[in-house]
């Protein structure tokens, strides 16, 4: 007999699959980013159904909120339209079906979903649930106790990763516009930001005067 929770679980999983396929099909990146936000929000609902309330609100705030804002900011700089794919989708489809088949084969000896006797619930989880109130202090939320106390080193490693990523983003974006490279007469010309079109054309004329015209073989380059 299927309980109401299981019905919600199945409906949300089907919604997620539909959203995912819509992301693949749309050529408008703005729509794709919005669909990704919807995907995050629906999965947050699914986390609530599966009792992971902390994961749910983190996913709703970070996955549906911050990620969407970051992607929209990027789209403002790189444009909204995706080009038609040039290759046939057969090879990626084959790889995806093969990988999915292997993964499904891997699940066949897994314990059933939600069984209280599953191996994952046998090791330290009962200890955390029973003892955290005495060992860590009067914190009702066990996830908080595990995150900040029992597995505090994990969280410290996480902050190190976030710090590294932040340093990377700052190094990449803090320099302002970089020089652009323009392909002209079979060679690359570096153009500093702020150069006007007239200056660039004058420079191209001057440089192409010194250089011999490219022969056919060289001209095909690039």
């Amino acid at each position: 007999m299927i309980s109401p929770t299981e019905v919600v679980d199945i409906v949300l999983l089907i919604l997620l699959a539909v959203t995912g396929v819509a992301v693949i099909r749309t050529r408008n990146l703005f729509a794709a980013v919005m669909l990704a936000g919807i995907y995050s929000l629906v999965s947050a609902g699914l986390f609530v159904v599966m009792d992971a309330v902390d994961v749910a609100f983190t996913e709703a705030a970070v996955g549906a909120g911050i990620s969407t804002v970051l992607m929209l900011g990027t789209l403002a700089l790189v444009g909204y339209q995706e080009h038609e794919p040039r290759h046939t989708p057969l090879l990626p489809l084959f790889v995806v079906v093969l990988t999915g088949g292997i993964l499904v084969y891997g699940t066949t000896d897994m314990p059933p979903f939600g069984h209280p006797e599953n191996p994952a619930h046998q090791h330290v989880a009962p200890h955390y649930l029973e003892e955290s109130e005495h060992e860590v202090g009067h914190i009702p939320n066990v996830v908080t106790s595990v995150l900040a106390s029992y597995r505090g080193y994990d969280t410290m490693g996480e902050t190190a990763v976030v710090f590294t990523a932040m340093v990377g983003v700052l190094l990449l974006l803090s320099r302002g516009p970089l020089p652009r490279r323009v392909h002209h007469n079979g060679r690359w010309i570096t153009v500093r930001p702020g150069t006007t079109r007239e200056e660039l054309e004058a420079r191209m004329l001057a440089e192409s005067g010194d250089e011999p015209e490219p022969v056919d073989g060289e001209g095909a380059r690039g």
Binding site: I2, S3, T107, T108, P112, G114
Partner: peptide, 9 residues
Amino acid sequence: MIALGLFNY
């Protein structure tokens, strides 16, 4: 939930 078996995975 056990009725779902491996469907979720």
